[in-house]
Design a binder for these strands. Structure first.
Lengths: 202, 202, 202, 202
DNA sequence: CCGTAACCGAGACGGTACGTCACGTCTTCCA
DNA sequence: TGGAAGACGTGACGTACCGTCTCGGTTACGG
């Protein structure tokens, strides 16, 4: 799956089992709903998927990448970006949704992956490419629209804007040092858009 | 050390070896400069400190908490907060310094700890209490001064302000999806203070 | 090996490595020739056998039972019982051989096992079943022939006869309080067969 | 205790605590009634005796020798040898008593010591000198009387006679492969005195 | 009658082996 | 020839007991 690329052009012998792959991803996803990434063992996955451990390692170089695919495949679906006509509203809306999802047991994976990536640069890289990048690219659309409509100042890089908005969420998700709910989402976008400085209304 | 609490004024029996504790923390710190937290084994620490593994486990429930103490003890020193007369300048200054430190090999620990904490709530909790909290409390002073001087709007919670400023840094440190240097530090505080929205008026 | 029971006619998956098992037993045997049973560590065995410690513990519950199998497998070979036509000569002959063997560095295992068994009833039980019993059963043949030929009084239990002959040897082997050589072997069987009492010749 | 030898001619400083020593021996003895020798840890003894571990190691080189002293001190008392006028009766009587004692929970120490001695020649040596030798010397008296009275053939060494009688018991105590009771005691001495061979004459 | 040496309890220490766990690889047989 | 079963080597884990070593404090001799 990591390198699906070209669909197999027909090979001799038994063909790769699509069922096995699906079972592996499904099992991984379910397990990740219950345990943290590194409490899920490769044997857990194999057993639950009714699959051999060797089959897993045949197609993925390690456990983490299985999880990445499992979560990635799933989230590819629900990538939809609001378009209310206001960048601020769009960001607020998306931030709220994102927070709700990532706080759910099924959604802690973002943190798990970031955590896993700290000890595995290769994995972190893939995580960015296959997980983060697509989402961020979608969100950049909001930013671009905002800039185009004259809602957002041009001098700030789009990437930076995303980090200004989602960085605080990521921080709180990972460190858990403060509340994280719809109210915070509103406050964050409000602050990012309007700034925390008092107008120097001399 | 994890629970030093009240240092008992006089205890019977052989006193806990200060040398051993110091050696453990020192060794841990040095090892953390070279390897990631979970590549440092308890035996590494024991060997390098010239200490028995059992001694480590007598005082710390696991390796992570040793590392926490090691780093904590060290950083307790260099907690100093700028005071230029401008909250924005103070935050910018501190953000720059912090970025430099956390990007150094010796400073990756913040990420390691956040990563470790994802699989160990108890550890995460302690990390917040003993590592995060003191730093944040110090930084709140900057915010408070800003509010008092009329530089910062009262309606934003101080904790939120910290996350607005440091969240983006944490995010980039952990995910590595974008650059992180002095220039970014300036851009972040600029954006957080002034907002990314275009003034509507003209 | 500890519970080979019925060798399953065909099993799925990778078969248990005969080479590994043989290497383990061989290594154990060699180590036992040099050190006492409890100076031989499981890591010694693993290293010398080029095998993982986990593999050892997969098949044997502990080190002692490995040793038991190692020695047992070896001694299964040289179980041969003399048949000179005289029970007394047979016993004497066998006692001599046995003494020579058990006094050799490679043969101290009987004592090691008896020693180990004092702290582990389960091990002692297995030692009896897999080590002692077969040897004693073989030796009972000598006794039976003696009874059949009218050389030995019927009123003594065969088991008791074995203990009368081998008990003194075991005692001296373990306690080391007296010499133990061919001469003693002769004296023991002589005494056991003819008694130490003076005939009341009147 | 191990080397009391000459009572100290008066030393400066605090005197050795008789109470501590007694407590250690008492505690050891009680623990040996419940657990096997090497399940009794030095800390068990220290705790139960209300004594410091260092105090133990100050006077005894290791745990086993403490146990030896503990048991030795106790058994020094009940060394009494029957004198019925018949060596065979005397031996039978003593064998019965001995079996009863050694089969009791408190009396398993003989086996424990022999077991412990297999890995510690020095300990085994001391065990022989301080435990075995005195008992055997006492029992030799029975043998000597038997010889003097013309009950026992002169050509057998006294030491050998003891092993003929007590070897089977030791063997069964340690290996547990056969019953051991009064009946066996009678059978053993009967066999040893009269021999197991059928008289050839008729 | 005071100093000092030898003792004592408590308990921390370095060391060594234990048996367990998860990883990712390898081997065998079956479909 | 792909895949399930499952055994394998590796290497870290945290625990247990050993016998040693400080501590602070307690006798009791000898000056």
């Amino acid at each position: 799956m990591v390198k699906p690329a070209t669909p197999p052009p027909k090979r001799r012998g038994r063909q790769r089992s699509v069922a096995a792959e699906a079972a592996i991803l499904k099992a991984t996803l379910e397990l990740l709903g219950k345990k943290s990434l590194n409490d899920v063992t490769s044997e857990d996955i194999a057993r639950k998927a009714g699959v051999s451990k060797a089959t897993i390692y045949k197609w993925w170089p390690n456990k983490n990448l299985v999880a990445l695919d499992a979560v990635g495949a799933r989230l590819a679906i629900d990538l939809m970006v609001p378009d209310t006509g206001s960048a601020k509203k769009d960001f607020t809306r998306h931030l709220k949704d994102t927070i709700v999802f990532y706080k759910s047991p099924m959604g802690r994976q973002l943190c798990q992956f970031l955590a896993g990536g700290q000890n595995d640069p290769e994995f972190l890289d893939l995580f960015r490419k296959r997980f983060l990048k697509p989402r961020r690219d979608s969100l950049l659309v909001i930013w671009q629209r905002g800039v185009d409509r004259g809602e957002i100042r041009r001098e700030f890089d789009g990437e930076l804007v995303l980090d200004l908005i989602f960085g605080p969420m990521v921080y709180r998700l990972m460190a858990g040092h403060g509340p994280l709910d719809e109210q915070e989402a509103v406050a964050i976008t409000e602050a990012v858009f309007c700034g925390i400085a008092l107008p120097i209304d001399d």
